[in-house]
Amino acid sequence: MTALAATIPAVSMADVSIYGRAHVSVDYLDDGAKYSETNLSSNSSRLGFKGNHEINPNLKAFFQIEQQINFTTGSSSGGTSFATRDTFVGLSGNFGAVQLGRFDSPFKVARGPFNLFGDQVGDMNNLARVTNGRLDERYDNTIQYTTPDFSGFTAKVGYSMYKGQSIDITTANNNEDSDAFSVSLNYIGGPLEASLAYEQVEEDTLRGEADSIRAAAAYKITDAFKLVGFYQTTDFEGYSTTTSAARDAGTFNVYGLGGEFVIAKNTALKATWMTHDNDAKKSDADMWVIGVEHKLDKAVRVYANYAVVDNDSNVAYSPWMQSRTATPSNQSIVNGVNEALGEKAAGFTVGLRYDF
C-alpha cells in the first residue's frame, strides 16, 4: 500500500512540466525633450506550469497556468495574484480544441508573423496599441475554439464575457456590457506564415467600444531572408459620453514592413518600419527599429536594438511603452506641458533572453 501511494505523485506529475522565460535588458531611453536615462527592464518574463492528460486515443485534457515575473525587482505582477498571463483548461481531439480561461485573443496572437521585436524596445505595439480603448488584450472569462489543421490552415474563434454585465444597473459605471469577440484565420506552410483577424469589443463605460481588423504575414524569400508585413485598422466608437476628439484619437490605421536576414549561423539582422495614421489632427507617428540577435543555443539568446519614434506635434509616443517594466512616461512635463510632444523618442537596448 505504501509503495502504491508513493507512485501516485509521480504518475500525477508525469503530464506536467514547468517552463518559463527570464528576459532582461539594459536600455538607454531618450524622449527627445528632457528625459534621457538608463534603465534595467524585465520584459514579459514569466513562470508557468502546463500539462495534458490522455483520456482516450481521441480525447485529451490540457491546462496551463502562467504568471508574469519581474526579474529586476523580484516581484510578480498583479500584487498577490497568480496566473496573470495565459491561464486556461480545455479539451482537444479530432474536432480541434476548446479552452476556457484568461489568455491572448485570436486578434492579439495574429500579429505574430510581423512581431520581430516582441517584448523589446521597438515592439510593434508601441504604435499598434496606443489608445485607452480596449484592443489586442488578454481577456478574462474567455471561451475559444481552435479548428483542426486543414493543409496548413487553422481558425480561432474566441468570446469573452470579460467582467460581464453588472446587475447594479443604477450606477452608471456598473451598467456596462463589456463582452469581446475575436476571430482569426491563420496559415503556415512552406515559406509563408500569415494571419487575418477581426476583433470587436462591446461598449465599456470606462474604455469604450471598438472594431479592429489586422493582417500580418512573413515570407521566406530565401533560407537567409524573411520579409514581413503588417496592416491594422481600428474604429473607436467610445461610449455615450465620449467626445468626438477622443473618438478620433482612438481611430487609426497602422501598417509596416520589415525583414530578417541571417548573416551567420545563429545570428540575424532585423529591421522594421511602421507608421501610425490617426484620425486626430497632427497625431501621426513613424517608428524605425534595427537590431541584431545571436542565439547562443536553443535556450539562450542575446540582442541589441535601436528604435526611434518620430511624432507629430500632438503626440509623444515612444518605442518602449509595451510589455516591459521600464516604461518611463510623462518625464518631460513642465508647467503642465509635455515637452516631448512632436519630438523624436529613441531607445537603445542590450538584452538577454533565457527560455527554460
Rank of each mutant, 00 (worst) to 15 (best):
Y198T: 11
G133R: 00
N115M: 10
G112W: 06
G336D: 07
G152C: 10
Q120K: 15
L100W: 06
L59N: 10
R85T: 05
T275D: 05
D248A: 14
L127E: 04
N173L: 14
M161R: 15
T131H: 00
N39I: 00
D140M: 09
N174Q: 13
D248M: 04
N186Q: 13
G122A: 09
P328C: 08
A264G: 00
A285W: 05
Q99Y: 07
G133L: 02
H294W: 04
T251S: 12
F236D: 12
Y198H: 14
R138F: 06
D149S: 14
M124E: 14
G51I: 02
R134L: 14
Y139G: 00
G32L: 06
D31N: 12
Q67F: 09
A346M: 07
A268L: 06
L341P: 05
R46V: 08
L100Q: 01
T154C: 00
D277T: 12
V254K: 10
I65Y: 12
N126S: 08
V157M: 14
Y159E: 02
G93S: 07
V11R: 03
T170A: 12
A299E: 09
A268E: 09
G189D: 07
Q67W: 02
Q331P: 03
A210Q: 15
K156Y: 06
Y139R: 08
S81W: 03
K163G: 03
G93W: 04
H23T: 08
S76Q: 06
L40R: 01
T242C: 12
A97P: 09
F63L: 00
D312L: 07
G336L: 03
F225D: 09
D15A: 14
Y219A: 01
T234N: 14
F230T: 06
I263N: 02
S283K: 03
N94C: 00
I18A: 08
G90Y: 05
Q64C: 01
A83K: 08
L227S: 13
D177N: 13
D123F: 11
E209P: 06
G118C: 04
S318G: 15
E66D: 09
A216C: 13
T325Y: 07
I221A: 11
L127F: 08
A307C: 12
L127D: 08
T272A: 05
A217E: 04
I167F: 00
N43T: 05
Q165M: 14
N338D: 15
E260Y: 00
R46C: 05
R111D: 15
L227E: 01
Y145P: 07
F107E: 05
N253C: 02
E37G: 10
L135Q: 12
Q331E: 13
D27R: 01
A285G: 15
I65L: 15
G112H: 05
F150E: 11
A304Q: 08
Y162P: 00
G164I: 02
Y255K: 02
D177R: 09
A194D: 10
L192G: 09
E203S: 15
K270A: 02
K34I: 11
E199M: 06
Q67T: 15
A285L: 12
R111A: 15
R21S: 11
K156P: 04
A61D: 03
Y354R: 02
A194K: 08
F348P: 04
P328Q: 04
A340F: 07
K108T: 06
S81E: 01
V337Y: 10
D149A: 14
E66T: 12
M13T: 15
E37N: 12
